[in-house]
Design a protein around this nucleic acid. Structure first.
Lengths: 150, 150
DNA sequence: GACATATGGTTAGCTTACTAACCATTTGCC
DNA sequence: GGCAAATGGTTAGTAAGCTAACCATATGTC
């Protein structure tokens, strides 16, 4: 009575962040043979699909800041997954190219992604999966727009 | 044809991690007056509800590793939100106590949490919110259990 | 053409999260 | 009682994300 209903600290938001942490952990387990993390894998996948992206373009696709991409690319370059190449018309920009080392792996990695996704979504019907995705998409839209407001 | 349907890099998993990032960002915006982040706020909330938790107990409630709690508590202690006190019967353990500085704020912070949650869930009916929470809960259970199994 | 502004990237410094390795106690078993 | 194993915390090192501040080059306007 004195404490106002004391809302349980487990809210949708913290639940969501927990799930995000767990996803990262599971991915690490699955992908450890290649020594790649989920964000790294995602970057390679984008570059596999669209070679020659600039860092800005990659940042936009990954929906992270350009600083994050700089560091991500640093690590991927150091490990030999990709190269930074000069942009032919804009001397500020760098184009990203996968190395030969990366080519054979990207396909395999989709399988890893599928495994983790399979673990996560086990027991959910096709309808429920769609529903989850669509709800998350709406939440994402809400949060993306909310930045400017007031 | 040559590229196998090329699944779009936007999967439920990456969508989920994006939303998690956005939540963190929105929370930072809302809570910046107190210079507290979402995990810090969550820790204070737990301690407000259950004073005297040990770090291990807090780690369990937050569902993060004890290392993470060590660092989190380091920062919270340095900023004067809480104290580490000796455990009365276990000399290894430390009990966490909120300081006077923290007391008045914890209540306010629930409001902040509610604001962010409100932004995130805007436009979702009560039923949809429940559905989202229940789906996430199932995903979380899947991922928690998946660790052991091969 | 010159200067203000916008854009591409980097550096520095922060928080959160992790694993691995390590002390110091406590507990359990013989 | 004594020793092995479990538990509570910390330290070191890494990845991912951010903001703020900063170069260098492009672009746009006068």
């Amino acid at each position: 009575m004195s404490k106002t209903p004391a809302p349980p600290p487990v809210t949708v938001t913290s639940l969501l962040m927990e799930v995000s942490r767990l996803l990262r952990a599971r991915f690490r387990e699955q992908a450890q043979d290649w020594e790649l993390t989920q964000p790294q894998w995602l970057a390679l996948a984008h570059l596999n699909k669209t070679p020659g992206l600039t860092q800005s373009e990659l940042a936009e696709r990954l929906e992270v800041s350009k600083v994050t991409v700089t560091q991500l690319v640093d690590r991927l370059e150091k490990s030999g997954w990709l190269r930074r190449e000069a942009h032919e018309s804009d001397r500020r920009a760098t184009r990203l190219q996968l190395t030969d080392k990366a080519a054979p792996v990207t396909a395999e990695l989709w399988r890893v992604g599928a495994v983790v996704r399979g673990q996560a979504l086990a027991g959910l019907s096709a309808g429920e999966r769609e529903q989850l995705e669509s709800l998350l998409q709406r939440v994402k839209t809400n949060l993306s727009g909310a930045a400017a407001k007031e």
